[in-house]
Write a protein that binds this DNA or RNA. Structure first.
Lengths: 229, 229
DNA sequence: CCCACTAAATGAATGGCGTTCATTTAGTGT
DNA sequence: ACACTAAATGAACGCCATTCATTTAGTGGG
């Protein structure tokens, strides 16, 4: 049985090889890194609908069943992709900017990355950090930033969870159709809402999803910022 | 072709029948309301994994293909279920409580309902309101409450969207495993985060998801509350 | 009264999916 | 040269949503 996703290699010792009791065939066509990048490519080209184990195997010139020597399920592949994507989330501001700006930069970057991968959100949201080392690394960077900014330690995790929840929900908004709030023929029975929608449309040309995200994010930053020592 | 979900019957005239040019068979075993309630029951009993068109048809004593006379896809059924569930979200506080308490009550109720139905969230989040009359009614009640409280009209929709995003993301948290933040063997390489997780665990016995939700919600309420006239 | 018309239900078929498994292939250390 | 093993194969399996030609059974108009 191959190493499962839940026991990833220690990134600090990439040479570390699992204990083996006999010879190992050299010509390994497949490995988790290769599967991950092929999956990411395939998703980029065909979307999540076109992302099937058969299609993934085809891009790797391999039989579908061969994948199961390196991965225990399709969900496993999604977890690998998710963790890889998380390394694209920019946490650098936590070492260069004041706390509020760091949170802002991180949150926008986080939403940006996953708004193109909303089918992963149900997976991420309930995934133990043990199964996602790069995600864990992101949490570490953010936690360190909160700590450095004098944020009360017992609330750090809750604040991150709250921010993340808002970010995930907002990632969906980005993909919503532009006319999602058009009440159409029922407009006359919903005067308050219809009027509010019209007023929004009159506003600047900024994307509605961006306006809502900014509004909520600034409220969260202000509210949490007041908790610092 | 049967009436689609996107053209629901006017709730104010339940007797209104679509124009027909010839006789209509009386023994209609199936209709959208029956399908919706059967679907809800089935989901309650078997979860979303057990919710298949075949299983749904079985509970209605009907062939799977018969469903397609009343519904155009499985997604359509999910939309019906979603809209029905939304009528369980409590918006009454907007007519009885001050604005901040009304938002609080509504948000907790909203999260409560959909935390048991997270597979619907990807559907709701991008669903045009036209296809979901009860959801539209909820927006109307909330908009009216914001208006009455002196909230600037051009920001009402953005505020609701932000709150909703936070609620949807938080609904996932409720279903996450308790040990989701256990960094396990990698604890020593993530000292800040591990320490923050430990500190959280030392706190009261309130569910972590509830603490995070409360933290974020209060920040949003405070931030948005300051915008009122 | 019955006939033309229709909505609704049927059951078989389709194509795709994720996954399993017995088997084969091909390197490796002893 | 042999024992051992990881990895790849290809054929199956069961399940899924959906389609479609056909049948069933009511109804209003003549």
């Amino acid at each position: 049985m191959p190493a499962a996703t839940s026991a990833p290699a220690d990134p600090h010792r990439p040479d570390a090889k699992p204990h083996r009791r006999a010879g190992r065939p050299a010509a390994a066509v497949l490995d988790q890194a290769g599967i991950t990048s092929a999956a990411l490519q395939l998703i980029g080209k065909s979307g999540y609908d076109g992302f099937t184990m058969a299609a993934l195997a085809r891009t790797l010139n391999v039989a579908p069943s061969a994948l199961y020597n390196h991965v225990s399920s399709k969900r496993d592949v999604l977890v690998l992709v998710q963790d890889h994507l998380t390394s694209f989330v920019d946490v650098s501001a936590f070492e260069a900017e004041p706390w509020d700006q760091a949170v802002r930069d991180w949150a926008w970057s986080y939403r940006e990355v996953f708004s193109k991968h909303t089918p992963l959100i149900p997976v991420i949201a309930v995934l133990p950090v043990t199964d996602a080392p790069k995600t864990l690394a992101m949490y570490e960077a953010v936690s360190a930033g909160f700590n450095r900014a004098g944020f009360p330690e017992e609330r750090i995790v809750s604040a991150i969870v709250a921010l993340e929840s808002f970010i995930f929900g907002s990632a969906y908004d980005v993909t919503a159709p532009a006319d999602i709030f058009d009440s159409g023929s029922m407009a006359e029975s919903t005067p308050y809402f219809t009027s509010a929608v019209d007023r929004l449309a009159e506003q600047g040309d900024e994307r509605p999803a961006d306006v809502a995200f900014s509004l909520g994010l600034e409220a969260l930053i202000a509210g949490f910022g007041a908790m610092r020592a």
